Simulated scan of single mutants.
Amino acid sequence: MMLEQAISEACAAVGVIPPRGRVAMRKWVQADTLAKNGKGDGRLICDEFRVTAMNWQTGDKATVWLKDEFTPAEKKRFAETRAKDQREDREKSARAAAIATKIIAASKPGTHPYLGSKGFPSERAPVIAAEKVAEIAGDYMVPDGACEAVVVPARVNGSITSVQLIWRDGTKKFLFGGDMGRASHRIATGGDTWLCEGYATGLSLRAALKGLSRKDTILVCFSASNIAKVASTIKGRCYIAADHDAPPKTKPEQFDGLGAGEFFARKAGRPYAMPPIVKTDFNDLHQSEGIFAVQRVLSKLIREARM
Rank of each mutant, 00 (worst) to 15 (best):
S184Y: 09
I128P: 09
E289V: 07
D281T: 11
R26I: 08
L165I: 07
I166H: 01
S288P: 07
W194I: 13
S223K: 02
P275E: 03
V16Y: 10
I103Y: 01
K229Y: 03
W65C: 03
R22A: 09
S213T: 06
S107L: 01
A94V: 08
R82E: 14
A97V: 14
C11G: 02
F264L: 02
R95C: 12
R270D: 03
C11P: 11
G119C: 01
R77Y: 11
L165M: 00
R95N: 12
K76M: 14
V278D: 00
F176D: 14
L34K: 03
I99F: 03
I128H: 10
S288V: 13
F292W: 11
E253G: 09
H112Q: 03
C11K: 04
A268Y: 01
V142L: 11
A96F: 02
P275N: 02
R237N: 07
R50V: 01
G119L: 13
K108Q: 13
G138C: 10
P247R: 09
R306M: 07
V151D: 08
T250A: 14
E262L: 10
S159M: 14
G181L: 13
I45V: 13
F222Y: 15
P19M: 04
A94M: 07
G257L: 06
A35C: 13
P271N: 01
G21R: 14
V127R: 12
F176Y: 10
V297F: 03
